[in-house]
Nucleic acid binder design. Sequence first.
RNA 1: GUCCUCGUAGUUCAACGGAUAGAACAAGAGCCUCCUAAGCUCUAGAUGUAGGUUCGAUUCCUGCCGAGGACACCA
Length: 581
Amino acid sequence: MINKEIKEILDKIVGDLYQDIKIPDFVVEWPKQKDFGDYALNVAMVLAKELKKSPMEIAREIMEKIKAEKGSEDLFKNITIANPGFINFEISDKYLTENLNRILKRKCKSGSSEMGKGKTVVIDYSAPNIAKPMHVGHLRSTIIGQSLYNIYSFLGYKVIGDNHIGDWGTQFGKLIYAYKNWGDKKKISKSPIEEMTKLYVRFHKESEVNENLEELARKETKRLQDKNAENIKLWKFLVKESLKDYNKIYKTLNVKFDLVLGESSYDDMLSGIVNNGLEKKIASKSEGAIVINLDKYNLSPFLIQKTDGAFLYTTTDIATAKYREEKLKADKVLYVVANEQALHFQKLFASSELLGICENVEIDHIKFGMVLGESGKKFSTRKGDTVRLNDLIRRAIEFAGKAVEEKNPKLSRSEKKKIAKTVGIGAIKYNDLSQNRLTDITFDWDKMLSFEGNSAPYLQYTYARINSLIGKFKNLYKLDRINPFEKTNFDLLKEKEEISLMRHLIKFPEAIENSARENGPHLVALYIYELASLYNSYYNSVQIVSDEKQITKARVTLSKSVSITIRNGLSLLGIDVLDRM
RNA sequence: GUCCUCGUAGUUCAACGGAUAGAACAAGAGCCUCCUAAGCUCUAGAUGUAGGUUCGAUUCCUGCCGAGGACACCA
């Protein structure tokens, strides 16, 4: 990547130039204003104090030195200095056109790297609770997780996607109790989650008048954890049926997992975890329960075993961390879980550290804000005021269907259907992935279903436009059988919009890497949006397909490399492109 | 009460401690006899508040104000 090449050169030059002092960290950054160049360097200002010289003077020294460096002309077209001490670089035309060739050659792989080769990252995402419908809140974890999965894979990591489903715990006691009393097997098989939700809601309603219910449910939970045959059988049934429903959603959203290791998978490890903690004197008894004291971290204790002997999700999470370290050989574990659980993860990570689990593993809570109801308050499953994921998806596809009907009524029915699905789902995903703010999102139908401006359909539309241009070009010059992009003379690209596009294209690999570093898919989204935006301006101001063959060819080929980049970027977000829309 | 996250145009969001704080939507003015108008061009509009650190703060630290969330036997 070019920013790294620049940094390397600079490290050397600055090191040679100022041998007497310790060089502080400095960065090669993207200037805010494009007029300043492609890359900017702040080193002169950082050094100014130490060297007791003016930043501009230092910048000048460094600039001269870079210009004198051999090979620098291949890389830079222009190097300038600007107040208060920036050194700005403009990348050479040679590099820009070489990059176009690289994109065309690498196609689907353009932008990928081997950065993470040999490293394993486990990503924990989605993790719905069995028997509860997935609502808009689950969407964030699911698609952010999937996108990080794609991004890390693209960077050469071995990625293991794990759906840590909530298939163990007290909600099963309630559900089992409800099922035994009011359940109907057939109904459940027919629409699993819906029926289970009804049971769950009924349980809560009745427990308001009947105080014993909670206690009875606790007993069912305990019986399940003690491996009572009837309860185990029931539990397996409920889990299996729930997964049927979830898998439909995953399929629609094109979300995949390598493992679906729910909480129950770690059951055998739990007593070992607690005993080990007690032996190491890290865990201790407190008010009849067993806790890990976290005073050292200024945190309240981590409760890992209840007074009645039952384990909790805290215990399971410790076991899971251990499993991921020992069995999955993770170098990095990412928990894509809502911000609400921040405290839990703080305590989990602290406890793991005390227990010597994941000592050499980078563990990170990838938190995100909640999706709030239109009232601005938290959605409540119990009150049933959430927006179900299913409904959201259905409405988005319907809405997109109407848009296609309006804009392109002549297409075949099946193509319209496909477009509606791709656009609708793309819009939902992009709406979420294009923002990484930890702020809570207030759910808004209009925004979710916006197909204009900074949205997935905008990007898909740009892709479709380019595709259409390529068709037109091939048609006009009868290029059916040959590769229309070979041996293109890029020197013909002289328009300022063309140069801007080329300058932007070199930064794609960096955008992906930044995105992984920040665990923020929105950086990829932002990048491709800017690219598409530049392209649409270009499209509007320059005639791309014309009767001058060589220029047309150069322009179409440039367009092609833009479309490859948009496609690859969208694919990292888990969004598909369309040839026509 | 303690802790976590967040306060940026009317709204939804951007901005590794850098240069003139960017977009989109909404508002207003234009652009289809011309490659897909799901598009393009132009106009107007913002860093909650008071300090501190720094050559430089939307960004880091502290206080205050405001929003949301989590706090021991649920997950």
